[in-house]
Structures are given as structure tokens and as C-alpha cells.
Computed example of a mutant assay.
Amino acid sequence: MKDALRITEIFCSLQGETTRMGLPTVFVRLTGCPLRCGYCDSTYAFTGGETQSFQTILDKIASFNTHHICVTGGEPLAQKGVHELMRLLCDAGYSLSLETSGALSIADVDPRVSRILDIKTPGSGELSKMHWKNLDYLSKQDEIKFVLCDRNDYEWARDLIRERRLETLAPVLMSPVWETLPPANLAAWVLEDHLPVRMQVQLHKILWGERPGV
């Protein structure tokens, strides 16, 4: 269908990550992803879903009466039509963020969108898929995120941050893989290295556990 996207779910919850953590947010989770990160918590979005028109999606979002919207996946940029949906959401006055793996170019994303760029670490198994040119497109309204599996991932990310001075491009976030890397360990490493990052934990999983729709 023209003017349509494959959607896994649309729901309202508290934002569990990024600098928008805690804000009531409508999540639009698109179906499909070209990556297979070892720690992925949304594998159910790889396939299936339902084709929905832009108008159906917009009507569903409006029904929640919430200002903040997050377009996520899967990998939302894998569906080309997502650019038009994001333009429509921005035109409607929503505060919009996009969660993307970093494997696909963000160059054509509407500049009104806050782009959350996930830099894949060695522990993800998908480092080779990174589209490094994306760093050139970032602004201060965007964010860089590292999801860390272990100490090796942390040291790799730390060295990259220092080498590329990533904090000068956009705010940098570090998150431990749920129930794999103890959050206290990551906190200690960040403090020890005086790293210019924001450490985060996944608030939604603390509140409701690891399940869809939260």
C-alpha cells in the first residue's frame, strides 16, 4: 500500500531510555530489521505486523492524547515510508524521537526529529554494520547511545568517545544490557574514568519487566 507502513504495535507508556526518560510517550514500533544483535529485546518485531495506513497510525496516536512520540523498531528506517510519517507527525506538532540502530543513513530524517543513534559495540555482534557517516549528521538535539554487554564493550566505547570526542556532537548515553552487565559496575567505570556520558538503565523493565507493549 502507498502511504502505509508495516506496524508491530502502537502503545502508550513511560519512556524508559534517553534524556526523555520518564515522560509519557506513544511508541510506534515498525516491523522488520536488517540486524540481529545478540541482546535484542524486540525480536518479535522482526516479522509479522500489520500494514496500516498513515491516517490509521495518526488516528491511533492521537487517541492517546500524548505530546511525545517515539518511532522505533525493529529498525524503523528499513521502511522508506517512515520519513513521510515522521514529517506528518512533526507537522502535527508532536515532539518526536527516532530510535535507530546506526546501520542506515539518518541524512534524510526530518531535522525536527531527535535522532537516537545506537552505536553498535563488538558485543552486539553487529559492529560491522555501522554506518559511520551518521556521526557527521548529528546535532545537539540528537543523542548517541551505547548498549554495553561487558567490560570489553565499555572500554571500546570509552576509547571511541575519547578519540572522536563524541560528546561534542551530541549527548552520549551508556546503558547496560538487561540482566547481563550489572548497572553498578557500569556506574563505577564511568565515575572512575570521568567519562562525559549519561548512564541510564531501562526504566520500563524495572517497572514492568521484559515484555512487549511497555
Rank of each mutant, 00 (worst) to 15 (best):
Arg20Ala: 15
Asp59Glu: 09
Glu50Val: 15
Tyr154Asp: 03
Ile119Tyr: 00
Asp150Gln: 02
Ile206Leu: 09
Asp59Gly: 06
Ser42Cys: 13
Asn152Tyr: 08
Arg20Asp: 11
Val190Pro: 02
Ser97Met: 15
Ala187Cys: 06
Glu143Cys: 14
Tyr39Asp: 07
Leu160Asp: 02
Val201Ile: 09
Leu88Gln: 11
Ser97Asn: 08
Glu17Arg: 01
Asn65Glu: 15
Val190Trp: 06
Phe27Ile: 04
Ile61Tyr: 03
Val190Gly: 08
Asp150Ile: 03
Glu126Phe: 05
Thr180Asn: 11
Cys33Ile: 08
Trp132Asp: 06
Glu143Ile: 04
Arg29Asp: 02
Asp110Cys: 08
Ile206Asp: 05
Trp178Glu: 13
Leu96Cys: 04
Val201Phe: 05
Leu186Met: 15
Thr168Asn: 15
Asp110Asn: 13
Val201Leu: 07
Thr51Gly: 07
Gly125Gln: 07
Tyr44Ile: 10
Val190Glu: 02
Thr19Asp: 10
His68Gln: 15
Gln52Phe: 15
Pro171Tyr: 06
Asp153Pro: 02
Thr18Ile: 12
Arg211Val: 11
Leu148Arg: 00
Leu14Asn: 06
Gly16Ser: 09
Thr121Ala: 07
Thr18Pro: 02
Thr66Arg: 03
Arg20Tyr: 14
Lys2Met: 12
Arg112Thr: 11
Asp142Pro: 01
Val201Trp: 08
His194Asp: 13
Val82Glu: 02
Glu126Pro: 05
Glu84Asp: 09
Ala188Ser: 11
Asp118Ser: 01
Gly81Thr: 10
Phe11Gln: 06
Asn65Val: 13
Thr19Glu: 14
Gln55Phe: 15
Tyr137Asp: 08
Glu99Leu: 01
Thr18Trp: 08
Ile144His: 00
Leu88Ser: 05
Tyr137Met: 13
Glu163Pro: 01
Asn185Leu: 09
Pro183Cys: 09
Gly93Arg: 04
Leu203Glu: 06
Arg164Gln: 13
Ile206Gly: 06
Ser124Val: 04
Ser13Trp: 13
Glu17Gln: 01
Leu148Cys: 08
Ile144Glu: 01
Thr8Glu: 05
Gly32Lys: 12
Leu5Glu: 02
Ala103Trp: 06
Val147Asp: 00
Pro196Leu: 02
Asp153Cys: 01
Ala157Lys: 00
Leu148Phe: 03
Ile119Gln: 00
Phe11Glu: 04
Asp91Thr: 11
Arg115Trp: 07
Gly32Asp: 11
Lys80Gly: 12
Asp153Gln: 00
Ser63Tyr: 10
Glu192Leu: 15
Gly93Pro: 01
Thr31Arg: 10
Asp91Phe: 13
His204Cys: 07
Gly48Glu: 04
Cys149Thr: 15
Ser42Gly: 07
Val26Gly: 03
Arg115Gln: 09
Leu135Val: 05
Ile69Asn: 02
Gly213Phe: 02
Gly73Arg: 01
Thr47Val: 10
Lys129Glu: 09
Val71Ala: 04
Glu17Thr: 05
Thr66Cys: 14
His131Val: 12
Met174Phe: 09
Thr25Ile: 13
Thr47Lys: 08
Leu138Asn: 05
Ser139Ala: 11
Lys205Cys: 08
Leu173Gly: 02
Val147Thr: 00
Trp156Gly: 01
Asp153Thr: 04
Arg112Leu: 12
